[in-house]
């Protein structure tokens, strides 16, 4: 089964959603990771922290941020969405708002269980490079370096390759966002634990051979005897 880009991203988001632990507070990076919130039902009791100052259950934190951003980009007279629209009970149930000092105290202080980040490169030593390409327009690290420095568990959620170039490497070539912090990498080709300086395959996409997966990866993969195929329901869901 060949997945198109959107289906591959959804597959990754669905698989990462199951790595999140009920009863915890988590942070999702921009792009693909943000999709995960929409795939986690509120009943799962998985909470998300937005570093611009909100905690909400399931997708609610992102509802608030998305509405805010939409209004801001529309150049509305009053972009303070929370003033103008109010919240439904589902959005504010258990939610809290806070300033950036408190927000990053949660992040650096180890109070966030898992951060899910996209990336340009990730290395078998746990290094991550996702904020800067020399020679291209300056972008900035935002909160990514703080997330990497303090969150208990960093998961990278990313397409396996960028225009045919592997993202999983022996060492990053781009300037690092953080050194030695990534614990798990999830792509459309598998779930990889970063262990003892190697990518250890926990689950693999059964539509490809080990050789095919290795071929598009920039570091030597370890396939332990107990590695499993990714469950069929992820693929069924991803192509819906």
């Amino acid at each position: 089964m060949e997945l198109n880009k959107e289906q591959a991203q959804k597959l990754i988001a669905l698989r990462v959603a199951d790595e999140l632990v009920p009863g915890t507070f988590n942070n999702l990076g921009v792009g693909l990771p943000t999709m995960i919130a929409g795939l986690v039902p509120n009943e799962k009791d998985i909470w998300f922290q937005g570093e611009n100052g909100v905690i909400g259950v399931g997708n609610s934190a992102f509802d608030i941020i998305n509405q805010t951003n939409a209004q801001a980009s529309d150049k509305a007279v009053d972009p303070d969405i929370i003033d103008s629209s109010g919240f439904t009970n589902t959005v504010t149930e258990g939610a809290s708002f806070f300033d950036s000092s408190v927000s990053f105290s949660m992040i650096r202080g180890g109070h966030i269980h898992t951060a899910v980040l996209g990336t340009m490169e990730v290395a078998e030593n746990g290094d991550i490079a996702n904020y800067m390409v020399p020679g291209r327009a300056l972008a900035g690290m935002g909160g990514a370096m703080d997330l990497c420095s303090g969150v208990q568990r960093v998961i990278v959620a990313t397409l396996h390759s960028n225009n045919g170039k592997p993202k999983m490497l022996e060492r990053c070539t781009l300037p690092l966002t953080a050194a030695g912090v990534v614990k798990i990498v999830v792509t459309e080709l598998g779930v990889f634990d970063v262990k003892d300086g190697h990518f250890v395959v926990r689950e693999y996409n059964p539509n490809y051979t080990f050789e095919q997966i290795q071929e598009v990866t920039g570091a030597k993969l370890v396939f332990p005897e107990n590695c499993q195929p990714m469950a069929a329901h992820y693929f069924e869901e991803a192509v819906k």
Partner: peptide, 12 residues
């Protein structure tokens, strides 16, 4: 008094 997610760095 701030409201919602608009607080960010403002208090600091």
């Amino acid at each position: 008094i701030y409201h919602g997610s608009s607080r960010t760095h403002t208090p600091m």
